[in-house]
Computed example of a mutant assay.
Amino acid sequence: MRRTALKLAVLTVMTIAIAGCAVTGTKYQDMSGTIPKVKPGEGRIFFFRAATPYGSALQPLIRLDKVVVGASKSGGFFYVDRPAGTYQAATMSDLRKTLGISLEAGETKYVRMSPSFGLVTGGIVLDMEPAEKARPELASLAYTGQVIIDK
């Protein structure tokens, strides 16, 4: 009886913690018509993370070169537009592990943010993802970036 009560208490706390980490916001599929076109000479980088409870409490900020561009949130995505060039993406929790991104004018790149756990700590790993694999997954994710204002 006592073990059952303890298991129920742990399960309740875990459920509340996971729900507190859930991303709310407009889904990509509902906002794709409102996302502005990329300006001439620039490219776009989408950062996205699958909606899973695994590692959902890990939500480090993401840097592109030395600028914070968003946060890694389970079930979320954001994007940045940058002039053509080469950039280094990293999480604020581990600036030593970087992902080099070469961006051409008019090009769109996709960066998957995935939780990873080591012996002592967890972190978010950044990996390039091909468009044909990223786009279908992106459709169900919620926008976590800056609010887009139509002008």
Rank of each mutant, 00 (worst) to 15 (best):
R2Y: 04
T4C: 02
T4R: 08
T4D: 13
L6Q: 11
A9V: 09
A9W: 05
V10M: 10
V10I: 13
V10T: 05
V13Q: 09
V13A: 15
I16W: 11
I18S: 10
A19H: 08
G20R: 07
G20Q: 12
A22Y: 09
V23I: 06
T24N: 11
G25K: 07
Y28H: 15
Q29W: 08
D30E: 15
M31I: 04
M31K: 08
S32W: 15
T34K: 14
T34I: 06
I35S: 01
I35P: 02
K37H: 10
K37A: 14
P40G: 09
R44M: 08
I45H: 01
I45Q: 00
F47M: 07
F48E: 00
A50V: 12
Y54G: 00
G55R: 00
S56V: 06
P60G: 02
L61S: 14
I62C: 06
I62M: 08
I62P: 02
V67Q: 12
V68K: 01
V69K: 01
A71V: 10
A71Q: 14
K73L: 08
G76Y: 04
Y79I: 00
V80S: 02
P83Y: 11
A84T: 05
A84M: 05
G85P: 11
Y87W: 12
Q88G: 00
T91C: 14
M92F: 07
S93Q: 12
D94L: 06
L95I: 11
I101N: 02
I101Q: 02
S102F: 00
L103R: 01
L103F: 04
L103E: 02
G106T: 07
T108F: 01
K109G: 01
V111W: 05
R112Q: 10
S114L: 12
V120G: 00
G122L: 09
I124S: 03
V125C: 01
L126D: 03
D127M: 11
M128Y: 04
M128F: 08
E129A: 14
P130F: 10
P130A: 13
A131L: 04
A134Y: 09
R135C: 03
E137I: 15
E137C: 05
L138H: 03
A139G: 01
S140A: 15
Y143G: 01
G145N: 10
Q146M: 13
I149L: 15
K151C: 00
